[in-house]
């Protein structure tokens, strides 16, 4: 794989900096579709560069992974990456079982785990108290489940996402620092229509 321009960095805590992780995962993405859970993950993918292949969510908490499943089943030749937070994943945790049973090779779920609800005042989530999301995904039956803490592990994750031997689940421990908002468009009909057009061309609007 070619050298990345993105530099994967860690913060004062020694934990990975979320936007450097997301930039590395989305660089040279080769048509990969990305759905981001509401809150900071939506701002993160927007900071990496807003584009039609991005679907940043403004709501639907707990639904991001299942949206990834529906999209991955509809577009088996495309890579589909769901990037979400620990709170959002916990709310839809049963979807890991649903996804494991379907076994979509082209679907990857990456949880940016800062162990807090970032949008509501940094209250602790269950992962702060030891809940192991990667173990839960493994228990559901997802074959490739990873705990990611280092830049090297992020690069390996990036390779695995593009290899298409999913479904893949990664829990990425990140620095909890709150970053400046980078807001995507808020008119959600535009967000869906632009992704559909990126996949199917103008015919998408005549379906």
């Amino acid at each position: 794989m070619a050298q990345l321009n993105s530099k994967i960095e860690t913060g004062a805590t020694g934990k990975l900096l979320r936007r450097t992780v997301v930039s590395a995962l989305l660089e040279d993405r080769r048509g990969m579709l990305c759905i981001a859970g509401l809150g900071a993950p939506a701002w993160d993918i927007t900071a990496a560069g807003d584009c039609p292949e991005n679907l940043p969510l403004w709501g639907g908490m707990g639904g991001a992974a299942m949206m990834g499943l529906g999209l991955a089943l509809a577009q088996p030749e495309r890579r589909v990456l769901v990037i979400t937070g620990d709170g959002e994943m916990l709310m839809g945790i049963g979807s890991l079982a649903t996804i494991a049973v379907q076994r979509p090779k082209n679907l990857s779920i990456v949880v940016l785990d800062n162990e807090h609800y970032g949008e509501t005042g940094m209250q602790e989530t269950h992962t702060h108290h030891g809940v192991d999301l990667a173990a839960m995904a493994r228990g559901a039956g997802i074959g490739d489940c990873r705990l990611v803490k280092t830049a090297e592990e992020v690069l390996a994750l990036r390779q695995a996402i593009h290899a298409g031997a999913g479904p893949l689940f990664a829990q990425v421990k990140i620095d909890e620092q709150t970053l400046p908002l980078v807001l995507p468009p808020r008119e959600a009909s535009i967000l869906q229509a632009r992704m559909r057009e990126a996949i199917m061309g103008k015919a998408a609007h005549l379906q």
Binding site: G63, G70, Q192
Partner: peptide, 20 residues
């Protein structure tokens, strides 16, 4: 696709529509 809870289906069908 059998779901663990019905709301999963709403997310899934949104994703399906995104993909045509």
């Amino acid at each position: 696709v059998t779901l663990t809870t019905e709301e999963e289906g709403i997310g899934m069908l949104f994703g399906a529509w995104l993909g045509g």
